[in-house]
Each structure stands twice: as structure tokens, then as C-alpha cells.
């Protein structure tokens, strides 16, 4: 099963993924149209500040087994067998928040969505861009990410490739070659911001 793999060391907090996600889940699927819609579309991926100005893009991991599915009393949460995605049937959702209580990543929240015609809030978590996946496209957040912090693929494939990188760096280092994991500009910038964090209210 393909997943959106997060490489947090590459997240620079631009929140491009959030905008792309909100637009993808709007009625118009258009950046300029989305702003005029009611209800306003919201992102299902959340880039929030951790310590020292570092960020982590947090979203539904589409667990297997999924705790949210296990506890849903109305069967609103179900799995798409083809892609392995955990999806929400908005008609069945009663916003009881059982799923939110058991979610290990705290990414479930509730709001009105355009897909449901009447006045109720639903679990509007990440749907793994199921429509895009069916068209053979990657999720909107991954497409929007320009730093490689979000990668879409088979988890073992992704891990194999980073493992190779690790081996390469380690052997280079043994040979005395410089093989940094991150570019010097980023390393220097983060070192400075780490100090700033400790001198201000955001530390």
C-alpha cells in the first residue's frame, strides 16, 4: 500500500501542503474559487510549530488496523480496499468524536463540509486524495511539497532508498569525505533559529 511518508527534517514550514489540501477538497477545486465557498474548505494536513521553530506536517496515517474504525459506532469509517485508505462516509458520521479520542496522531476534528447538504459537522480527516489516486495521481499535499518533506510511495521502497543514502553517507564519512545529510545553508539557518527560539516567546 502506498503512503504519504513524512521526512520532517525537510519540512521548512511553508504550509504549501495545507493550501493544496484545502483547494483539493473544495467544491471548485480552484484556489481562487475556494476562498468564496461556504463552508470554507480547510486543510486536512496540519503544519504546526514544535520546538526551536521546527515543524512537522501531521495527517491521517491510514493505520491498519485503524483505531478510529474500530470504535466508530455507526460504521462511518471504512477502508478502501484498493488503496488501503481509511475513509469517512459523511452521511453516517454523527460527530460523536470517539474516533478523535483514539486517534494516535490527534488529527481528527469536525466541521461542515460541502459534500453533506444539511447542517452538521463531520470528521473531515484526510481522505488520502482518493479521487486523485484513482486517476493515478499523487495526493495534493505531496505534489505541493517542493522540499521532499512529503513523499508518496510504497513505504518499503522509500525506506530502501533512504537506507541506501545512509550507507553512502556513512561510507563517505569513513573515507573522510564530507557527506552531510542536509545542505549547509539549512543547517546554519536552523542553528541560528534554535538560538532565537531560546531568546523569545516562541521558545
Amino acid at each position: 500500500m502506498k503512503t504519504v511518508f513524512v521526512r520532517p527534517e525537510r519540512c521548512i514550514g511553508c504550509r504549501h501542503c495545507e493550501i493544496a489540501c484545502a483547494v483539493e477538497h473544495s467544491r471548485s477545486r480552484d484556489l481562487f474559487g475556494a476562498f468564496f465557498e461556504e463552508p470554507k474548505p480547510s486543510p486536512r494536513i496540519h503544519v504546526e510549530l514544535g520546538v526551536e521553530f521546527l515543524t512537522f506536517p501531521n495527517k491521517c496515517r491510514h493505520c491498519e488496523p485503524a483505531p478510529c474504525m474500530e470504535v466508530c459506532p455507526t460504521g462511518a469509517l471504512y477502508r478502501d480496499e484498493e488503496t488501503g485508505s481509511v475513509l469517512v462516509n459523511y452521511d453516517k458520521c454523527i460527530a460523536c468524536a470517539m474516533c478523535a479520542m483514539v486517534c494516535p496522531f490527534d488529527i481528527i476534528s469536525f466541521k461542515k463540509v460541502w459534500h453533506v447538504n444539511f447542517l452538521k459537522t463531520v470528521n473531515y480527516k484526510c481522505d488520502h486524495c482518493i479521487d486523485r489516486q484513482r486517476e493515478g495521481r499523487e495526493p495534493a499535499c505531496v505534489e505541493a511539497c517542493k522540499t521532499g518533506a512529503l513523499v508518496f510511495g510504497e513505504v518499503n521502497e522509500i525506506i530502501r532508498s533512504s537506507r541506501k543514502d545512509f550507507t553512502l553517507r556513512t561510507t563517505k564519512a569513513l573515507e573522510g569525505e564530507e557527506a552531510p545529510e542536509l545542505p549547509e545553508g539549512i543547517v546554519a539557518f536552523r542553528e541560528i533559529m534554535k538560538k532565537v527560539a531560546h531568546l523569545g516567546p516562541l521558545g
Binding site: I12, G13, C14, L49, G185, I186, F189, P201, L202
Partner: peptide, 17 residues
């Protein structure tokens, strides 16, 4: 301004760089 700084977090890395 302190509240607004907090509300702005995280600030875009492309911009900061």
C-alpha cells in the same frame, strides 16, 4: 504583536530563507 506572531507560526521557510 506577540499574539499575532504566535498565530503566524509556522512561518514559511521559503520566505525566511
Amino acid at each position: 504583536a506577540w499574539d499575532r506572531l504566535e498565530a503566524q507560526q509556522p512561518q514559511c521557510g521559503f520566505g525566511q530563507l
